[in-house]
């Protein structure tokens, strides 16, 4: 079959969805970032699994933890919604697919922003 794409379209390499390999690439980049973050976070989670209010706040509010925890939650939720998008694309279609993908992204942003503001509130006192 002959290729009907223009040379410019081929050079741009963005395909019909106009985003090329962006989704695939971001999934890999966030995956690599999450390798050390998840190892750190898994151990911290066991450590804090029984922590009371004061202990949890002291941990969340310490400078290094603020940075790493923000990264873990933001990068983790971003990676998660990329993956869930593919799940919806595989198992649903039409209006339901569009709704579930947008809904998933909204939920990720809602909880991500909520967690980041919570971390800042604990760390900066308020």
């Amino acid at each position: 079959m002959s290729d009907t794409r223009t040379p410019l379209s081929r050079a741009r390499g963005l395909g019909s969805a106009k985003e090329g390999v962006h989704h695939w690439w971001m999934q890999r980049v966030t995956a690599i970032a999450l390798i050390p973050l998840v190892v750190w976070f898994a151990i911290s989670l066991v450590m804090l699994s029984g922590a009371d209010y004061a202990v949890a706040r002291a941990w969340i509010g310490s400078p290094l933890v603020m940075v790493l925890l923000t990264l873990t939650i933001v990068v983790g939720l971003y990676h998660g919604q990329l993956g869930l998008q593919v799940v919806w694309e595989d198992y649903t279609d039409g209006a339901l697919r569009v709704f579930m993908i947008v809904f998933t992204k909204f939920i990720a942003v809602l909880f991500g922003l909520g967690a980041v503001l919570a971390i800042m509130r604990i760390g900066f006192g308020g």
Binding site: I73, A115, L117, I122
Partner: peptide
Amino acid sequence: ALSVGGLYLATWVMYAA
């Protein structure tokens, strides 16, 4: 499961705040 778990962990941080 981890995506749902991630929301749960975000909730934990919000409860701590």
